[in-house]
Design a protein around this nucleic acid. Structure first.
Lengths: 146, 146
DNA sequence: TTTATATAGTTGTTTAAACAACTATATGCC
DNA sequence: GGCATATAGTTGTTTAAACAACTATATAAA
């Protein structure tokens, strides 16, 4: 039982909590100070639309690792903020394609700078190699459970 | 700018999302299949009380990296489930000391087994050394932002 | 063609996170 | 002692996650 050499509950709380909530809180705080009035969850959806506009809600589910109801409501809220709009697909009328508004495109540069700054703050004193290993571990955890 | 060699948004979603939600979902599912009717957030509070009973709410905040309102409500719900009880401290009447009920103590062995099993599933194919590095990275992220 | 099944998205409900504003008790200083 | 300040906990509000149940459209099989 080689894996029994560390405290499992501790690792559990590391993976599920500490770092994740700390980085989320800091990014939210950095947004607030720059008068960016969106949540980090909303930002994580916009992030994928900035990479590729016009994704379906299902594609956003896959990209953000959320379920469909979660994306429905995040898109609802982004639509209320006039940052995206739903456009029914002509090919497949079940699908909503989600498009960024001009307003959302203006947010991109501003928030990407803040996200980079936040990650620089977060990753101080950590080497690239260590980051790569951490990414790999988290990816394997995800793959093992999916 | 050595840290610019990876995609920051991707790392962000690794740290804040994927692995964390996957492991939480799996643990919740394992609880459900064993007819353990608590949430993983409630479990994470019980976990610290099993290590040391009679913690104050503030101590639970520190242990679980949650804020005070979050702990107030988690303790509310655990009290409704008759798993803990609040006892006003005699030394300092501002404090509630949180004690496990017998019912909660019965849960310990059962759920610790499920948590270990979940972590074994999650960490398949990852070495101890890699786990230690991942823990260290997440700890540094937390420390950098706290 | 109609019937079954899969897929895309929505709605309802419970639980929790984050933040601000609040009450109550304790402590330190004059 | 009395006042300022710090600490412990609660309440209100918004946003989101998870899950089940649901509607609507598309696809495949009989």
């Amino acid at each position: 039982m080689p894996n029994n050499q560390f405290k499992r509950g501790e690792l559990y709380s590391f993976i599920t909590g500490k770092a994740s909530t700390a980085i989320g809180r800091r990014l939210q705080k950095n947004f607030k100070e720059a008068n960016v009035e969106i949540t980090i969850e909303q930002w994580s959806v916009l992030y994928h639309l900035w990479k590729q506009d016009g994704l379906s809600q299902q594609q956003l589910c896959d990209a953000t690792f959320r379920d469909k109801p979660s994306i429905t409501r995040l898109v609802d809220n982004l639509e209320k903020l006039k940052l995206v709009k739903r456009v029914a697909s002509k090919d497949d009328r079940r699908m909503n394609m989600i498009y960024l508004t001009n307003e959302a495109q203006v947010l991109q540069e501003k928030t990407m700078g803040l996200a980079n700054q936040t990650l620089n703050e977060a990753l101080g004193g950590v080497t690239i190699e260590e980051i790569e290993i951490a990414k790999m571990v988290l990816q394997k955890v995800y793959d093992n459970l999916s």
